[in-house]
């Protein structure tokens, strides 16, 4: 170690090397500001009256603090029902996506041909632009009575379909890592294929399955395009936020945005390791 340090020290430092420190600081500042500014402004707007948000020149610090905006999310019928609908849609979508995605991930981990087919299918599903699916899907949903449904189940189904690839790829790696021999041992112990899945594979993938669940929940929670096109009167939070923002209710909009933001932030930050390893697995095959 010491010798290495000496070698390093003995080498001349280039001009470029001298700029590295400040450059890093600048880059890190951009990262921190890019994250902190929107979150700060959001909180500020959510806890101050509307008028203050429209002040010119803008107020940088909150002057009058109010809880009215935040309360309105839970008290105004429109906001509250959007919140409830969003939770319901995301919960159903998350559960379906996790159940089906876990199954798909397991099949992909166990048969090479299914892995290839699964990857191809998942890729195809991911290529399609939202609008190309949503418009004809609307026609179908109208026919089956799930368009703009008050329970949001049409939207939940489409969100589940969108999140299945995520759940499959998150669990796939864990299933692939389970030694084949364990399942053969269980087979010889007398277990059926389904029992092997339930008693041997799933318990070992618990963490990944839980990660899939929260991840697909949040994907649905965040999703805007399909929600805008399908829930046109029974709105979930994202389209409602869109209308509030475009038509000007800053306070409630900010409070609504804050309510949307908190779980999303918590989940993504908590799942950073999963996301990172997933990205590594995804790019290096």
């Amino acid at each position: 170690m010491k010798a290495e340090a000496q070698i390093t020290a003995a080498l001349p430092r280039s001009t470029a090397a001298r700029w590295i420190g400040p450059a890093r600081l600048a880059v890190e500042s951009i990262a921190v500001l890019g994250a902190a500014i929107p979150i700060y402004l959001l909180i500020k707007q959510a806890i101050t009256p509307d008028l203050e948000s429209f002040a010119w020149p803008p107020h940088w610090l909150p002057r009058n603090v109010t809880s009215a905006n935040l309360k309105s999310v839970f008290e105004l019928a429109e906001l509250r029902s959007a919140l409830i609908l969003s939770v319901a849609v995301a919960a159903v979508a998350g559960l379906i996506a996790t159940a089906l995605g876990t199954m798909l991930g397991y099949a992909m981990a166990r048969r090479e041909r299914m892995r290839q087919a699964g990857m191809a299918g998942v890729t195809a599903a991911r290529l399609l632009p939202m609008i190309a699916v949503a418009l004809p899907l609307t026609v179908v949903l109208i026919q089956v009575g799930l368009y703009d449904s008050p329970t949001g189940m049409g939207l939940a189904l489409i969100h589940a379909a969108l999140a299945i690839p995520t759940a499959a790829l998150t669990t796939y790696g864990v299933f692939a890592a389970i030694a084949r021999e364990q399942e053969e041992a269980a087979f010889l112990d007398g277990a059926s294929p389904l029992r092997i899945f339930v008693a041997i594979a799933v318990p070992q993938a618990k963490t990944a399955i839980a990660a899939s669940l929260v991840l697909s929940f949040i994907m649905s929670w965040d999703e805007f395009g399909f929600a805008l096109l399908i829930q046109v009167t029974h709105r979930t939070m994202p389209p409602l936020l869109y209308y509030y923002t475009v038509f000007g209710d800053v306070g409630p909009a900010s409070a609504l945005a804050l309510v949307m933001l908190v779980p999303a932030l918590a989940v993504i930050i908590a799942l950073r390791p999963v996301l990172k390893s997933g990205l590594i697995a995804g790019t290096q095959r």
């Binding site: 890019g34 994250a35 929107p38 979150i39 929670w221 965040d222 805007f224 994202p238 936020l241 869109y242 945005a257 949307m260 933001l261 999303a264 932030l265 989940v267 993504i268 930050i269």
Partner: peptide, 8 residues
């Protein structure tokens, strides 16, 4: 974080 913030 910017990615964690819901797009809308």
């Amino acid at each position: 974080l910017p990615f964690a913030i819901p797009e809308i």
